[in-house]
Amino acid sequence: MSNRICQLFNIKYPIIQAGMVWNSGWKLASAASNSGILGLIGAGSMYPDVLREHIKKCKNATNNPFGVNVPMLYPNIQEIMDIIVEEDVKIVFTSAGNPKTWTSWLKERGITVVHVVSSVKFALKAQETGVDAVVAEGFEAGGHNGRDETTTLTLIPMVKEQLHIPLIAAGGIATGSAMLATMVLGADGVQIGSRFVASDESSAHQCFKEVVVKAKEGDTQLTLKELAPVRLIKNKFFNDIQELYKQSPTPEQLQSLLGRARAKKGMFEGDLIEGELEIGQVSGLINDIKPVSKIVETIIIEFEEAKKNISTF
């Protein structure tokens, strides 16, 4: 299945395991890489010394390429980037910020750089800064999202029309048939998050994984657009946000309700009542928790079957 994404990262299948906060530790990233895809450590939920530990453990657990996802809105960014260079990580996915800030710095140090965007405008800006590839993530995705609410099946062909570097589709992809659909629309590969949350190797709390498996259509919704749009499973905390909206709150009032460490409380510590439970709409298609290797195997089988079925149309 070799293509531009496989060649760029030296992987067997054009699939990236998303570097999600509180879910993507070294166990998930190494298991993904050992399965023939690109595993990513999610630095967004890690202090610099914790990130270094995860990188070292990932190196010991896999001989295959892996990378680090760095949301640029977090503090200690210089220290995080220095650790990535010191530990000889060769692939970095940046998100939640201006790619111009770090792309040249990383590439000068021999690192492959990919930036995550939610619109054609930002895809072109990322390309102009010299990134090696772009992840275009649709409105269906879990966690923090774009303000334009463009869906994946609309976003991918619009970005493809104007991009000349490799394009990775994200948002609402958990099956081989969805992978094929986005590649037919122009993507060179896919980034998958929510499906890997419900894996044995994910660092998410078991209670959160079970809620993801139980989620149905309509159980997630985008909220907190005044701060940073985020897709959450509806729970007490989500309902508290909706009640506050009835009072036409200021961003400061919303921030006060959000407080600190809500995502950690929900996804990592398993507080299903007061925690922030970030997951994509595609959780409605996730029905079990299983090893990463089995998830990847199933996706590839579905992908090949979908290709055969298309030829009969």
Rank of each mutant, 00 (worst) to 15 (best):
S95Y: 01
I111W: 07
N309R: 08
V197G: 08
A136H: 12
N69I: 01
E297L: 07
G110W: 08
K294G: 01
K121N: 15
N309F: 09
E302G: 03
E128T: 15
E252L: 15
E137L: 12
H144Y: 08
G172W: 03
I233S: 12
S248N: 14
L222H: 15
D49W: 14
M267L: 06
E149K: 13
E252Q: 14
S35W: 00
V296R: 01
K308I: 07
L180D: 03
L244T: 11
S199F: 00
Q191K: 13
G44L: 12
T94M: 06
V134D: 03
N60F: 04
L224T: 10
K225E: 08
Q162M: 12
G25E: 00
F237G: 10
T94S: 15
M1L: 11
F93P: 04
N287H: 04
V117N: 06
D219G: 04
A61W: 00
R260P: 03
I83W: 03
I37T: 02
A198H: 02
V131N: 15
V50W: 15
T150M: 09
I299V: 14
V190K: 14
K56L: 11
A204T: 03
K59Y: 01
N98L: 13
E274K: 13
R109F: 02
S33N: 15
M158Y: 06
N3Q: 10
Q127S: 07
S24D: 00
D82V: 03
N3R: 12
V21Q: 11
M20W: 02
A198G: 07
G143F: 01
L285E: 04
E87D: 07
S283W: 00
Q242K: 05
E278N: 09
G146I: 10
A61G: 01
D49A: 08
I301A: 12
G259V: 05
A215Q: 15
T175Y: 02
V114R: 05
E161Q: 14
V50G: 11
E278L: 09
I168P: 11
C58I: 01
N10R: 14
K107P: 05
A170Y: 00
I80P: 08
K209E: 02
I168C: 05
V68I: 11
E140Q: 11
D271G: 12
S33F: 00
T154N: 10
A61D: 00
P75S: 13
G25I: 01
M72W: 02
E278P: 00
I15S: 04
D240K: 11
A29H: 06
F93K: 15
K100C: 05
A174P: 01
K121E: 05
T94Y: 04
F66R: 11
T151G: 15
K59W: 13
